[in-house]
């Protein structure tokens, strides 16, 4: 067992002030492929919701095009006018020149903060503008976190598979001014591939996928042969079948001086989920999540055990 370290965090050293400070709530990028109408309706609701920070953009597949960058920027301005802090998220797997071209446009947008989801994006942002270091950048330790701070990261998202004990260690030596964000709700994006598993399932080539991922607003369920829900196929991304849910650990997140709690979009009841988390972030009980999740919960990673497990 690693020793539990006392918190020695510059900006957050006053624990009483910290307890009073409201943790912010963020809405991660939509990981699925939804129709333009569905996205517009979704974000119209989000504009009125209690979420503080909204991450926008296509992070999974460059073929998805129901919203183009100019559409995302338009949405970003609308949400910004509604009082939301907007961050543009970049694609997690960059393979081609056209991917890079899209990435450069986002990095140079000049208007909104960018969340870098791989190191190419970091190169385009480092030393130029403050950025958010996304969940896939593999910031597992204090030395790497310090390096990202020097590059200009204003916030980092904890890797999904790290536990609260690792978070405690990272927070104990967190660079001054660095904010910490934790993925706290949603099916977890566990892996990326060059292969599109949705197209593979439909026996279609990736280049002619017919955008079949539009059929599955919350991804395509993959079950074991004894019919246990196991994973979720979402194009080139593989997610957990279970929904990561730290709604019962909000007080702990606060005591660990986490600045931002992230919820990841699902196709239904998202505003109710935002509300439930928003209340908890404000230190109030909040409505229970039973009936709102698209699948059973898990929280194993938080407890340092297999991610699919659930601990009370």
């Amino acid at each position: 067992m690693r020793p539990r370290l006392p918190l020695r965090v510059g900006r957050h050293s006053d624990n009483s002030a910290m307890a009073l400070m409201r943790m912010k709530l963020s809405l991660g990028p939509v990981l699925y492929y939804w129709t333009r109408e569905a996205l517009m309706e979704f974000y119209a609701g989000v504009a009125e919701s209690g979420v503080d920070i909204v991450y926008l953009g296509e992070v999974v597949c460059s073929r998805r095009h129901n919203l183009r960058l100019d559409d995302w920027l338009g949405l970003a301005r609308d949400l910004s006018a509604s009082g939301k802090q907007v961050v543009l998220s970049t694609q997690a797997l960059i393979e081609s020149e056209s991917d890079l071209k899209a990435l450069r446009r986002i990095a140079a947008n000049g208007e909104f903060t960018v969340e870098a989801n791989e190191m190419g994006a970091v190169r385009l942002l480092a030393g130029r503008v403050p950025f958010v270091a996304g969940p896939h950048l593999n910031i597992y330790n204090n030395e790497t976190l310090a390096w990202f701070a020097e590059l200009g990261a204003m916030r980092f998202v904890l890797p999904l598979e790290l536990s609260r004990d690792m978070l405690r260690e990272l927070q104990a030596a967190r660079p001054a001014g660095m904010q910490t964000e934790v993925f706290a709700y949603g099916r977890m994006p566990l892996a990326f591939s060059a292969r599109c598993f949705t197209a593979r399932h439909h026996d279609l080539p990736k280049d002619d996928c017919q955008f079949r991922c539009l059929d599955d607003a919350d991804g395509l369920a993959l079950k074991t042969r004894d019919r246990t829900p196991f994973l979720t196929l979402n194009g080139i991304q593989t997610q957990s079948a279970l929904v990561y849910d730290l709604s019962e650990s909000i007080a702990e997140l606060r005591s660990l001086a986490v600045d931002v709690v992230r919820v990841s979009p699902q196709s239904r009841d998202m505003l109710a989920i935002i509300e439930a988390f928003s209340e908890r972030c404000a230190g109030r009980p909040g409505a229970p999540l039973e009936g709102l999740r698209v699948a059973a919960p898990c929280n194993g990673y938080w407890h340092g055990v297999p991610g699919m497990e659930y601990r009370n």
């Binding site: 892996a191 957990s240 340092g304």
Partner: peptide, 10 residues
């Protein structure tokens, strides 16, 4: 970029 193994086994 693959956490499938820790999802199942830790």
């Amino acid at each position: 970029r693959c956490a499938l193994s820790s999802y199942v086994t830790g």
